[in-house]
Design a protein around this nucleic acid. Structure first.
Lengths: 157, 157
DNA sequence: CCGATATGATTCACATGTCAACCATTTAGG
DNA sequence: CCTAAATGGTTGACATGTGAATCATATCGG
């Protein structure tokens, strides 16, 4: 008699909700990314890295710091940085403080690519995501996102 | 003077919302999938295909029908089915109606794997997603998901 | 019936993600 | 100091995703 909140399993409605929600977010995300790739030649991964570097002091970060901020596996970041370095979007240098570590620097070309991608990317988010909701729904979503992040132990942003 | 609903760009709060939301859902999804892989050896892709086949008439579907239902690229489905067939979770046969097409059949082993994955998978969804929210938040989310799906032209489910 | 086009599906090349193993340097303890 | 464990990062093998090209069969307009 303790269905829902107390049980170990979701109701079928809760399950359907999860699937519906997951698919919707994945669809929105993939459409936004595909537009970004078309408009600026950047992938979602590229964008996240460039965003973090752009906001960093001196447009550079320790690789480990970057991995922590993105909550990415080290090997994932390593591959991503390798591809981006090959394309000239960033450079890696040995860290002065710790000979094991490396420092990731945004290049001018990387900064330019990031700037160029911003407007179309924001427009896509507005059009494909934000515009789907009423102001009330948006406020509710903000609340729900915060609750989920807390539940999963993620930083509040 | 028409910020928000009317502008072409999202407010910075709306942008942050999108990032926060996207990351939260991706994190939930990857944790749920990683548990499923651990508990039942099935990936998220495996699960979607098995779910669709399990619900289908005669535990089988035309490949094209499956792709449409999952909203997957054909090449993606083709690769997924190839891997699953190799593991014995399904079989492919030439379609009797159309010599171009093929029919995807759930094998007994596939059905068994799907059944075995259900309980732990549902438990993970409850624990990692549903339990994050109050009943009111859940109802709001249901509403928001429906709005987003409609906006993106997805079926209501 | 015939050629042009559309449709169902696979293949290829390549980008991306995961996990485990590995290498180098640092740090902790004795 | 010196060794053992911890830390920073890369690598390799493999699963998965995307888009273009390809191939066979179907269907349509004459």
């Amino acid at each position: 008699m303790d269905a829902g909140k107390r049980g170990k399993l979701p109701t079928s409605r809760e399950f359907a909700m999860w699937r519906a929600h997951l698919e919707a977010v994945e669809t929105a995300s993939s459409r936004i990314e595909s537009r970004m790739r078309r408009d600026s030649g950047l992938s979602g991964g590229d964008y996240r890295v460039l965003l973090a570097l752009s906001e960093a002091e001196g447009k550079s970060m320790r690789s480990s710091q970057l991995a922590a901020q993105l909550e990415w596996e080290r090997s994932r970041l390593s591959g991503q940085l390798g591809r981006m370095e090959k394309r000239g979007l960033l450079r890696r240098e040995p860290s002065p403080e710790d000979a094991r570590g490396s420092l990731v620097l945004l290049t001018d070309e990387g900064a330019r690519a990031f700037r160029g991608s911003t407007l179309p990317h924001l427009a896509a988010i507005k059009e494909l995501f934000v515009d789907a909701f009423t102001p009330q729904q948006l406020a509710n979503l903000e609340d729900a996102a915060a609750a989920l992040r807390t539940h999963l132990g993620m930083p509040a942003r």
